[in-house]
C-alpha cells in the first residue's frame, strides 16, 4: 500500500490539531516555529510514501505489556495495577481500514512512574513492568494490546500540574504524510479538562476523540477490562485529474 505514490491524502486540518505555540504548555513556547509552515502544493514521492511494516518481525509478546518485561527469573511475576485490554481499529478518514501498519505505545506504570532514566518521580518502578508495546494492524485495521492502566503523574508546568492517565500512541499509516503521535486518555478522568497538554486542542470534540471508552463487551470476565480506542489517519484517495492543464 505504501508503494503507491499516486495516492493523495486529505489535507491536514491544522485548526483541529494543536497549534505549535500553546503558551499554557510552557515547553511549547521555545519549541514552536515562528515562521509559517511552508505548504507543499505538489507533494512528491518523498511525502506520499512511507515504510510499510507488514513484514516487520515482531516478538510474540511485543503487544503484551503484562508479559514483555520479565528480564530475569528472580523477578518473574506480573505487574501491579488494573489489567486492561486496549484495542481498536485504525481507519482512514473515509473509514477504510489501515492494514499492516505499525502501532506503538508507551506509558507509565500504575503509580505514574516511567521506566526512563530521566523520570525521578518518587512513585516506585514496578519490577515487572516496562511500559512499551508495539503491534501491526491486521487486514481489517485492528490492533490490540494488553497492559495495566497507567497512573497520573505530576510534572513541572504550573506549580501543581498533573497529567491525566494516558498512553502515548504512535501510528505510521501508509505514508509519512499520515504519521501521527498522540495520547490516549481514559473515559471519566477528571484530570483531562485541567491538563495544559490536552488543552492545546481548541475543540472539545477533538479531545473527545482521544478518550478511550470502557468497553465491557470487549473485556475478559475475571481477568481484564477493555478500553476501545479507534485511530483515524488521513484519508487516502487516488489522484484522478493530475496534470490536465
Amino acid at each position: 500500500m505504501a508503494q503507491n505514490d499516486r495516492t493523495a491524502f486529505v489535507m491536514r486540518d491544522r485548526g483541529w490539531h494543536p497549534p505549535a505555540y500553546a503558551p499554557a504548555y510552557k515547553t511549547s513556547v521555545a519549541r514552536s516555529p515562528q515562521q509559517a509552515l511552508m505548504s507543499l502544493q505538489t507533494p512528491t514521492a518523498s511525502e506520499l510514501t512511507g515504510p510499510d511494516f507488514d513484514h516487520f518481525a515482531l516478538g510474540p509478546v511485543d503487544n503484551d505489556l503484562l508479559l514483555n518485561f520479565r528480564p530475569g527469573t528472580d523477578r518473574d511475576g506480573l505487574p501491579i495495577g488494573e489489567r486492561i485490554i486496549v484495542y481498536g481499529r485504525v481507519v482512514d478518514q473515509y473509514n477504510k481500514p489501515v492494514a499492516g501498519t505499525l502501532v506503538e505505545i508507551w506509558q507509565a506504570n500504575a503509580g505514574g512512574r516511567y521506566r526512563h532514566k530521566k523520570d525521578a518521580y518518587m512513585a516506585p518502578l514496578d519490577p515487572n513492568f516496562g511500559g512499551v508495546g508495539r503491534t501491526v494492524t491486521d487486514a481489517d485495521g485492528w490492533y490490540r494490546f494488553r497492559t495495566i492502566r497507567p497512573g497520573p503523574y505530576p510534572w513541572p508546568n504550573d506549580v501543581n500540574s498533573w497529567r491525566p492517565a494516558h498512553i502515548h500512541v504512535s501510528v505510521m499509516g501508509p505514508s509519512i504524510s499520515t504519521r501521527l503521535i498522540t495520547q490516549l486518555y481514559f473515559e471519566g478522568d477528571p484530570l483531562i479538562p485541567m491538563c495544559p497538554i490536552v488543552n492545546t486542542l481548541d475543540d472539545p470534540e477533538a479531545v473527545d476523540t482521544l478518550v478511550a471508552r470502557l468497553d465491557k463487551a470487549g473485556s475478559r470476565p475475571m481477568d481484564s477490562l477493555a478500553y476501545r480506542f479507534d485511530i483515524v489517519t488521513r484519508g487516502a484517495l487516488q489522484t484522478y485529474f493530475e496534470n490536465q492543464g
Binding site: 486540518d13 495520547q183 479507534d230
Partner: peptide, 29 residues
C-alpha cells in the same frame, strides 16, 4: 470513537496530534 466532522468535510476527522512528551524514548528509542 470516530465521529463525522463538523469542519465542512464529510469525513471522519483525523485523530488529533499530541506531544510525544519527555519519555518518548521508552516507546521509540
Amino acid at each position: 470513537m470516530t465521529q463525522p466532522t463538523k469542519n465542512g468535510q464529510l469525513l471522519y476527522p483525523e485523530s488529533p496530534s499530541q506531544t510525544a512528551g519527555p519519555y518518548v524514548h521508552i516507546g521509540l528509542a
